[in-house]
Computed example of a mutant assay.
Amino acid sequence: MWKANDAKWLTVDVVGSSGGILITWKSSKWDLVSSSSGTFLMSMIIQDKSSSSQYLLSVIYGPISQSLRASLWDELSQVRRSFSGPWCVVGDFNITRYPEDHSRRRRPSSAMARFSNWIQQEELIDLPLLGARFTWTNGRASPIQSRLDRLLVSPEWLEAFLTIKKITLPRTTSDHYPILLTVEDENWGPKPFRFNSSWLHLEGLHQKIVEWWKSFQVKGFAGHKLLYRLKLLKEKLKEWRREETQNREAKIEALMSELQKIDRVSKEVPMSK
């Protein structure tokens, strides 16, 4: 993955045929400040060598047992109380949050409710998942699929990385889809986006905005729902603006081509007055 002298790692051993956690990082970019582990959890505070900013990362492999799962929520809450900065919780939670997180749409359960309550209690943000709808499959001809894997971040993490996206990658040998948390334009900084009020007078745009807004499925408490809907709307408007610019340039190019043809013809045949 990286050259040997640049890679550091921490592990939690498997329990029977399940579990196990591996965290790796580039030692040239990150310093490990502290770490702690449990049966289903590994947490670490890391420091960016270039900025000295610190971040808390918790990686989990969730248990199936409801009692053990309750212990995991308590343990994660204790970890959070030890650090007030940006926090990211990622892993296979082994529990779905909503009925639509399952391909066969299960009924709401008390376990789902407790999971959602814990997320809201810790004020974590369940980032929208781009790419695949589900993160796990049993791989059969008529597969059962569900969203067991999640990546949750604190408001402080979101403030530190304004342009993060959570994307599923192609599945290879595992029955889980890898999830990539990526920061766009990290080296260049966020690009300003300006909404031109004259766009509202363009035919069809108002209806598009209404349709886009209704299509956004964002989970979380009210403030973050609004934040992410606005963020997704901005992305849609950027895409629309690019398409409009390309269409406009294509039309200009076509008109210029026609004018050149007319110009050539006018040089060969005098145009009538």
Rank of each mutant, 00 (worst) to 15 (best):
T96F: 01
S67R: 09
S272W: 12
T173P: 03
R97E: 13
Q260P: 04
I46P: 03
E186N: 11
N94P: 00
P270S: 05
L124D: 01
S35P: 00
E249S: 06
L162S: 15
P170G: 07
P63K: 03
L237F: 03
S257V: 09
T135E: 05
T172V: 11
R114T: 09
M44W: 06
V183T: 11
Q246L: 14
K191H: 09
A111M: 02
A70V: 08
Y177I: 04
N247Q: 13
S58F: 04
R194A: 07
I60S: 01
E243F: 03
Y177F: 13
P178W: 13
D175Q: 02
I95A: 06
G131C: 07
S35Q: 13
K8P: 01
D175H: 03
A113E: 15
W188R: 09
I64A: 05
L226T: 09
G204F: 06
V15G: 04
R229F: 06
W30Q: 04
W30L: 13
L148W: 01
S37Q: 15
S84V: 13
A132C: 13
T39E: 15
G19T: 11
A4I: 12
A70I: 12
L68P: 04
V218I: 15
T168W: 02
L127V: 08
S27V: 12
V89R: 02
R150M: 05
A254Y: 03
D48G: 01
E123I: 13
W157H: 03
Y61M: 06
P86H: 00
S53E: 15
D74N: 10
L202V: 15
N196K: 11
K267G: 07
S257R: 10
G139R: 15
D31M: 14
D101I: 03
I164D: 06
W87A: 02
I179F: 00
T173W: 02
I209E: 00
Q66G: 04
D13N: 10
K26W: 07
T182Q: 12
A7Y: 01
W118E: 07
Q260N: 14
M112Q: 15
S36D: 15
L148C: 05
P99M: 11
I209A: 00
W73F: 11
L152G: 00
K26G: 08
F193L: 03
E123H: 13
N247A: 14
H102W: 04
S53N: 15
E243T: 00
S51W: 06
V269L: 10
I23G: 02
K208Q: 12
S37V: 11
S17C: 07
V183W: 10
F40R: 00
N5I: 11
K3S: 07
K236L: 04
M42W: 01
E253S: 14
Q66R: 10
S198V: 05
A4S: 09
S266Q: 10
R106D: 05
W25N: 01
I125D: 03
S18F: 05
K231N: 14
S82R: 09
S82G: 14
L180E: 11
Y55C: 01
P270K: 00
F161A: 06
H224P: 00
V218W: 00
L181I: 14
K234S: 08
D185K: 13
L162V: 14
L148Y: 02
A113K: 15
L227R: 08
L41M: 15
T24W: 08
K214C: 09
Q120R: 09
Q246G: 07
Q121C: 13
D6V: 14
P143T: 13
D185S: 14
G85Q: 06
T172K: 06
Q217W: 04
E235H: 08
S266C: 07
K261T: 14
